[in-house]
């Protein structure tokens, strides 16, 4: 299932937390060879994990991490503004309606629909919170996967070559692409909605009151 968890709540989910940061080490350090830090616990963590980001996590039935991404509003510090302004044409991207999506990660044994489920969840966040765009930093080779699942970003540019190629791109979600992504994920929109509401609350009907 999809979980939506702020960093300060990860302490309540030790198995999910440990497996997420270790899968990130496996993906970004071992497989991609990015220059990332892996700590004594085997976690890949950076300074943006310290800003209480919102993690969107595909949780496997066993309770461990199957895939994830990290969201932060662009009104605060972001990776794209700190490190990739050469790719954004020098534009400091900043709006409460644009969030940054980074560290898109899949575990080695991720289920086939995991990537699509995460993109679908990204759409839930966008609709649920009134966002207009995501700006993302991702492994350039992910573009092929994003395209396959129907959530292709608009790539602003790429830095580095081969394994080291890192791209910056933009997403918005039309209802059509949402439907396509849901199909790829093998999830009904109502299940996706239920997971979102499990994290952020379902609407409880409110009685109307007359002023005394």
């Amino acid at each position: 299932m999809i979980r939506y968890i702020y960093a300060n709540d990860l302490k309540h989910e030790p198995q999910l937390r440990d497996s997420m940061f270790r899968d990130r080490a496996d993906q970004f350090k071992a497989r991609l060879g990015w220059e990332v830090n892996v700590d004594a616990d085997g976690y890949e963590r950076d300074e943006y994990d310290a800003l209480n980001p919102l993690y969107v996590i595909w949780q496997k039935p066993c309770g461990s991490h199957g895939g994830s991404m990290r969201l932060l509003p662009t009104t605060g510090r972001t990776m794209v503004n700190d490190h990739f302004k050469d790719i954004t044409g020098g534009v400091h991207i900043e709006s409460p309606l644009i969030w940054e999506c980074t560290r898109f990660c899949l575990s080695r044994d991720a289920a086939p629909g995991a990537a699509a489920a995460l993109m679908l969840a990204g759409g839930e966040v966008m609709n649920g919170f009134g966002l207009r765009h995501y700006v993302g930093v991702f492994d350039a080779r992910m573009v092929r996967i994003y395209r396959m699942i129907g959530a292709e970003p608009d790539v602003l540019g790429t830095t580095g070559k081969g394994r080291d190629a890192i791209s910056v791109g933009l997403w918005e979600f039309t209802p059509e692409s949402q439907a396509k992504v849901a199909e790829r994920a093998g999830l009904s929109p109502s299940v996706s909605r239920d997971w979102f509401e499990a994290a952020f609350g379902a609407a409880t009907p409110q009685a109307q009151h007359r002023a005394a």
């Binding site: 709006s95 207009r132 918005e172």
Partner: peptide, 10 residues
Amino acid sequence: RVYIESARFK
């Protein structure tokens, strides 16, 4: 659209 969104916020 992203540049305009950003400029309008600034």
